[in-house]
Amino acid sequence: MQSRSERLWKRVSPHLRRGIFKENPIFVLMIGLCPVLAITTSVSNALGMGLAVTFVLLGSNSIISCLRKVIPREIRLPCFIVIIASFVTIVELLLKAFFPLLDRSLGIFVPLITVNCIILGRAEAFASKNSLKDSIIDALAIGIGFTCALILISSIREVLGNGKIFGLSLGFPPALFFLFPAGAFLVIGILMGIIQFLRKGR
């Protein structure tokens, strides 16, 4: 058993490292930024959005990987979009039914997951060329990377823009600027700079 779980970890960990650091969808690949700017005003929204995207990615990556030999190359994009849109609609219905508060605060950005380029990007670049097992691991890795990035950005914006953390006041006047999209660009830009600096090692 020991060796089996070790082997599994050996197989998963490089993917995880790739999803969170080397190919982080937001900070390194810089895709899917639109919802990031809009919903990272609070940590709870960011977590909800991250999990929703991870779920859609998991569903679409596995189905597309299963069908990769059946789908003809010329019509792959419409096929991918139909599959992705179905999963997004399911997420939307589930959120409305079981997490109405989260659904209310995420608003229009749940249906817009359909056009999030992270998901189509993974379908095209990974799931349509790799086995089911690898596609599931890839979806989890990229989803976790996306969620981590959202939480990092939203915690900075919530603290600076609202002057609160977990509903507790921090005792300084909040800078509303950080809640506007311009504030989001600034936070993301500075974080990207720091991460590039660390990656390049100078």
Partner: peptide
């Protein structure tokens, strides 16, 4: 055929999800 079938199964799947969640919503 492939695109048609994918659309058909998606629609089928979605109608089930819709039927189940509508009363809860």
């Amino acid at each position: 055929m492939v695109l048609g079938l994918i659309c058909f199964f998606s629609a089928l799947f979605l109608s089930f999800a819709y039927l189940i969640t509508t009363p809860i919503i």
